[in-house]
Amino acid sequence: MSWSDKEPMISVRNVHKSFGDFEVLKGVSFDVMKGEVICIIGPSGSGKSTLIRCINALNDINEGSILVEGLEVNDPKLNKLELRKKVGMVFQQYNLFPHKTALENVMMAPIRVLKEDKKEVETRARALIKKVRLEGKENAYPGELSGGQQQRVAIARSLAMKPDVMLFDEVTAALDPETVGEVLVTIKELAEEGMTCILVTHEMGFAREVADQVYFTDQGLIVEHGPPATFFENAKDPRTRQFLSQIL
């Protein structure tokens, strides 16, 4: 993989994706540089989630190209495991493994997938749990944690794999308004540390605060994008304006 961090870490080109007759993505292109934080916003059904699920090959694409550090995702011979070691993902429904404790959830993949030393992994896992402010909850099962706490364990679990880029798929959408903040703080710290992040979100205030670039999608296309200041103040496209006026 002849990728250098001068080039985009993720390069999405003319991606088309259909579920049956329904075309969800109709030719989407964008680039993400190392260390950038990208927020994708847009109405429901505009293809935001599908788009980021395509980046780690949870959905395959019908046409186009997605390069992740030089790995072509739209390649039938793609080694999906290699791709997924580079790309971490956090889901709306947390998807923690309910039969494992918080600590075990974080430790399992590095030990089983990366075959790392158990002691080293444990040290790292405990540090990550501390980082997401869940010290003392190491031995709690997911069922004993609140939604926000579970989501933070999910973030720690993903970080334990030392990914180069993190995907967040509407990670606060299923949370109580009060607990949204604690998850956003964790993500913000991550962004400030230089982690490359792609977020699908409905938290406009948050997007404005952390994003380097904001993308607005509607009906399977990127309608408009720009740095948050210009995007939120001077949106040019009428669809973006209408959407923002409804949300803000």
């Binding site: 495991l81 889901f91 998807n95 999910a154």
Partner: peptide
């Protein structure tokens, strides 16, 4: 729930694992 499979996939577990 299919989320369990997806979470495992995104963490690079093989299907057997």
């Amino acid at each position: 729930p299919s989320g369990q499979w997806e979470a495992a996939e995104s963490l690079a577990y093989t299907r057997r694992q």
